[in-house]
């Protein structure tokens, strides 16, 4: 849609921008503003969780012990590694190394899928242990209602996070296709923007992991 026009230096820019610098900064700031909304989107459910956790500390700790901390930890490693690969991909993009960039993007994609795979496996184990509220929740111990509350939040938080992963992976798949054709050779802003988003999703998990899995003592 928007026609591009050329300026004296740098790649072509969309019609309404003066130069590449302006377009680049606008795009980056736009993503940061979007991430600020995401902070509050996730923040709301974190606040709700911590309100109930403060009220039912012991019950929530007991419930937390029923999660698979090992899978959570492995997934943290996977996601942090994918953050590294995406940061390196951005770096490669800035240095015009197309092949390297595509390779790192593929690595990020694979790690993202691995995360989802582990997560799905973990959900399956949770299901087998009758820990899925509204489907097969059954709790032998005391305070089943409050315990269920923990698992409701566990599923909402991890599913919303996983949804963000799925969106990220879909976008990334399309971007790899574009990158192979050289679409980002002149201007790798899109890869940078994707990197910001991906790092943010990683940060959410950095907080989710201790919140759900580690607060058990």
């Amino acid at each position: 849609m928007t026609e591009l026009h050329s300026t004296s230096v740098g790649p072509p820019v969309a019609h309404h921008f003066e130069d590449f610098e302006q377009e680049h900064e606008a795009n980056m700031l736009g993503m940061w503003a979007f991430l600020a909304t995401e902070v509050l989107f996730f923040g709301a459910v974190f606040v709700a969780f911590y309100i109930y956790r403060s009220a039912y500390a012991d019950i929530f700790k007991e419930a937390s012990r029923h999660l698979y901390m090992s899978i959570g930890a492995i997934n943290t490693v996977v996601l942090l590694t994918s953050s590294l690969t995406v940061a390196l991909a951005v770096h490669a993009g800035e240095h015009k190394a197309r092949r390297l960039m595509v390779g790192l993007m593929v690595a990020t994609l694979v790690l993202g899928l691995a995360f989802l795979g582990f997560k799905a496996f973990e959900y399956y184990l949770d299901y087998q242990e009758h820990l899925v509220p509204a489907f097969n929740f059954a709790w032998e111990g005391a305070n089943p209602a409050q315990t269920q509350l923990f698992f409701v939040f566990y599923f909402i938080m991890t599913l919303v996070h996983a949804l963000h992963m799925i969106i990220g992976i879909s976008v990334l798949a399309r971007m790899i296709w574009q990158a192979r054709r050289g679409s980002y050779d002149q201007d790798s802003t899109a890869v940078e923007l994707f990197g910001l988003y991906w790092h943010f999703v990683d940060i959410v998990w950095i907080f989710l992991f201790p919140t759900l899995y580690l607060l058990r003592q």
Binding site: S83, L84, V86, A87, G195, L196, H199, F200, D202, I203, I206, F207, F209, P210, T211, L214, L215
Partner: peptide
Amino acid sequence: IALAIAAVKAVLVILFFM
């Protein structure tokens, strides 16, 4: 400690990776 470590990790990602 758990939340402080998470915060430090997040800050590292934000400052350097981002």
